[in-house]
Amino acid sequence: MVSTDAILVLRCQEDDSQAFDEIVRQYKDGIYNYILRMISNRDDAEDLAVEVFVRAFAAIKSFRRDSNLRTWLYRIATNLCIDKYRRYGIERKKLVPLEREYGDGEIRPMDLPDTSFDPEKLLGQKELSDQIHRAIAKLPEKLRAPILMYDMEDMSYGQIAEVLGCPIGTVKSRIFKARTQLRRMLLPYVQNT
C-alpha cells in the first residue's frame, strides 16, 4: 500500500505545488518544535525550520521513493541543528535562554531549579516545563536528538536510527543514557510523578 507521504512526494515530483504545501502543513509544527527543543532559541528555530523546507523543496525531485519522507525531513533538521552548533561554536550551556518574568516585572534568565518547589503544584505549569526544557538543553546533542524524537515526536527506534544513521541498538542506548542524565537533573520532580 502506498502511503500518503509517498503520494505527496510523487505529486511534488510531477510539479504539483499544492502537494508541497500539504507536506509543509503536515510537518511544520513537528519540525519547528523539534528544532526549538534542540537549539532553545525561537528565532533561530524558525529560521532553521524554514531552511529545512527550502532544502526539501530543492531536493524533492531527487528524493528516493523508497525512503521515508518524515525521517528525511528530520534528518535535514538534525543536520542543520548540528551545523549550527559547529558553525557558531555554540556551547550547550549557552543554549538555555529560557526566561521568566519575576515579581519586579523584569524578565531575566530563569534560576536553577529550586528544589523547595512542590512538584505537584508545578505539574502542568509553565515553570515545570521550562525546567524540563532546560534539563534537555543540557544534554549532549547526540543524546538530545533521539530522546526528543522518541518522546516528543513519537518516532520509533527504527525511524530514529534512520534519521541519525546509526544502529537501532545505539538509539536505544542513547535514549536510556539521556533518561538517566535527565533523572539526575529532574530528580525532585521525577520522584513525585
Binding site: K28, D29, G30, I31, Y32, N33, L36, R37, E46, A49, G124, L128, S129, I132, H133, I136, I147, L148, D151, M152, L182, L186, Y189, V190, T193
Partner: peptide
C-alpha cells in the same frame, strides 16, 4: 515528563 512538554506550533 518529557512527553508532557507542550508541542510548540510553528
Amino acid at each position: 515528563l518529557v512527553k508532557s512538554l507542550d508541542r510548540q506550533a510553528a
